[in-house]
Design a binder for these strands. Structure first.
Lengths: 314, 314
DNA sequence: TGTCAAGTTTGTCTAGGACAAAATGAATGA
DNA sequence: TCATTCATTTTGTCCTAGACAAACTTGACA
């Protein structure tokens, strides 16, 4: 296992770790790590254990640490840091514990069953806010600590998506209002947040259309027009660089007609200080319900400024 | 619309077009296109119309053309080339025509209904091979010609995925054999081919577990072990560079135990000449059925070499 | 406690050169 | 006529080392 001296070139490392080529080279210059071997053509060839270290580093960076503190540390130090990254870990109820157990033991069918049972016990809204939201956080924390592997997270997402899609299909109303388009921008491939939003808003009676992930900006504009959407909803995960989030939102807001509202949510926007004009930041899922209510009121009294109404309420 | 002089830096262009930074710079040097304006720090800033041209170029490259022929051509010439790229367009039946119509008019609910109706009319296997396979080709061709936008393709994929997932849920057998793990490698984000494979193999009585897309190689190995998989199935779309496909397959084959079979399919592997040892290339969907039958026979007579058995049959 | 300015860190961008893998076309053999 | 092999061109990716602006940290001040 240790002497598995497979070598990866810089392009593969970029794809496997999510760290850009330029960044890998500049880290080598600045911190002396990673230090790949060179092969004939002077090309960098990264051994497997360094790639593993880079994966750990990426986790720490995504959880808010800065490169100077972590780049170059050994596997043991990195793991130690990952262990005590307390974050804002949610209270672990017995129910959550049971979900975690099912994920760790790869019981996909039982997991789906447990999801469905919880939905009908708690109701969809409470299921999302009281079970899935903290569960996502918990799974994120476990993943950080290395207790849950990527493939186990994939299994979890897959099963949850199945269950949510089924529920949504049952409550979808083609004539609902407002008409909402859901998608993510290029670079953001996490669809789960979007799906949870879709469930919440469908339950509130909206007509939701999911466009999938990674839709280019101009295509979103065309889709909103074609579908006569009232609202476009974007989701950003915390893996997305804040700068890209900000730029992407601004670009879409500029390209979209003023009459179409832009709602953005997910852990990737929680780090944004302020919303641009004409953009609404969504925190917890209840925000979506509120936003829909506000939108309906604004439609009843078209001359009222939406932002003003919101200020007035708070 | 034309004077919308928005400017994009090279990173954004890479994400929006899928053409790498290095490639964009070397094209500029070699072909004199794209020729971005420069801003203070000498950074490239690409105007919107050049990005649009790059999108058209990318389509032509993906459909098999070479850069020297297309890079630098104007929008009109590019569109002309895109029009008469005959490819191997399937016979357009009335049924296919109707599906295309529904996609072009964004009737998501009607589309889902039509899918479901076709499944119960044709049976799942025939639905996949006689309707969806040619439909995918047709939609690809339409997209090439610009008759179908990306967002419309997204809508199509989304609805088809919903329908297939529902069908799979109904026929899934947790005790089926062989135990099959489905996923894609990092870089491949197209899940539809995988889902179609899952449907076919689930129908044949296999126990399929979907891992989602973009699973790192070592995670696939761990997942296969955890799930005691007999087979790992990968899918590659034609958008994937052949070199990456080959390297990825080889890497996974090397890391996976010999006892686990590796089946690869999708339009991205159709261009591969020969399969490596221990790797089986899948063409049409009937290949999957055959492979499952062969696997079961091989298990009944464990000393028989699988590859030899296949040669013997043909 | 909150806000602003100065200082530091960090990702991304630039240049032109280099090379190996892939595609092409010519020449060969079955 | 069709498949193989070899030489040639095309083409994506990788290289070095420097630069800079945006984001973050720190410390001073109200």
């Amino acid at each position: 296992m240790k002497n598995n001296n497979i070598l990866f070139n810089i392009g593969v490392v970029e794809r496997e770790t999510g760290i850009g080529k330029d960044t890998l080279r500049v880290w080598e210059r600045r911190y002396g790590f990673p230090l790949p071997v060179r092969c004939e053509g002077e090309d960098r060839l990264y051994p497997e254990n360094q790639v593993e270290q880079l994966r750990l580093i990426k986790r720490l960076l995504d959880s808010g640490m800065r490169p100077a503190r972590v780049v170059g540390l050994g596997v043991v130090e990195l793991n130690a840091l990952l262990q005590d990254a307390p974050e804002n870990e949610p209270v672990i109820s017995a129910r959550l514990q049971e979900f975690i157990r099912l994920v760790k033991t790869h019981q996909t069918v039982a997991l789906r069953l447990a999801f469905n049972r919880a939905i009908f016990q708690q109701g969809l809204n409470e299921f999302l806010s009281k079970t899935i939201s903290p569960l996502n956080q918990l799974i994120g924390a476990c993943w950080l600590r290395g207790e849950i592997r990527i493939f186990e997270e994939h299994l979890y997402s897959e099963q949850l998506a199945l269950v949510l899609n089924l529920a949504i299909a049952a409550i979808h109303d083609p004539n609902g209002t407002p008409r909402i388009l859901l998608t993510t921008l290029p670079g953001e491939e996490h669809a789960l947040g979007l799906l949870m939003s879709k469930a919440t808003m469908s339950l509130a009676g909206a007509n939701c259309v999911m466009l999938g992930v990674q839709t280019p900006v101009n295509e979103i504009v065309l889709a909103a027009k074609a579908h006569q959407s009232d609202v476009v909803t974007l989701s950003f995960s915390s893996a997305m660089p804040p700068a890209q989030v900000k730029a992407g939102i601004a670009q879409l807001r500029y390209a979209l007609p003023q009459t179409v509202a832009l709602w953005v949510g997910g852990s990737g926007v929680a780090r944004q200080r302020k919303a641009d004009d004409g953009v609404q930041l969504m925190g917890p899922f209840s925000d979506l319900d509120n936003a829909i209510s506000l939108w309906r009121e604004a439609v009843s009294y078209p001359c009222v400024d939406l932002a003003a109404l919101e200020r007035c309420r708070s």
